[in-house]
Amino acid sequence: MTTLDLITAILSFLFTLLIFSYLIGDNPLFRIAVYIFVGVSSGYIAAIAWWQVIWPRLIQPLISAMLTGSLLEKGLIFVPLLGAVLILMKASPRLAGMSRGVMAFLVGVGAAVTIAGAVMGTLIPQVMGTINSFDLASASARNISLIEVIFNGAFVLAGTIFTLTYFHFGARAKVDGSTRRNGLIEISAWAGRIFIGITLGTVFAGVYAAALTALIERIMSLFNFLGNFL
């Protein structure tokens, strides 16, 4: 074990214990470990941002363009530079307004990317996937019987529709001022709650499995560290 590995093991063991101390209750050691973790993580991310974003994508092209680039390259590289400078203004409350244009640019680009991704990557494929749940050819390729395909496909279809109905909050106001959804939608939404409950239960089980795996990994790391000295 090298010195670096030893230091790493010690730090790992120490911080793991500090965090586990929270099982007893909130204590300064736990807080110190958390604050150090946040500081180190932020510093590390800042270093990453500098070395893997700003430097290779802005500074290096800028230097390159200034040295050998054409006028167009210089102009094109000055735009993100200007945007970077303006977005730095956001750190100052007085100058934050100057970054609105840059933020508008980011929001606009992000919205466009999200729209295209949602439509082409999720909306249409998932609708098609729901339809294909009854695809007998695909089922036969998986050696799935017809009854099983229809049975499972029906549940998938029902779960999809009912869950979507659950998120339908449109309601017509009645004369007495109360708002209530249509009766059919209300029933579908109730069934949708069942499917959502099942889905969230599945997620809960997955979260617990992931957490349990992490706990096991930490416990094993502790024993591994201790095992090095035993």
Binding site: T199, T202, V203, A205, G206, V207, A209, A210, T213
Partner: peptide
């Protein structure tokens, strides 16, 4: 994927 993100 992690077990927690698999359902989605």
């Amino acid at each position: 994927s992690s077990a927690q993100s698999a359902p989605m």
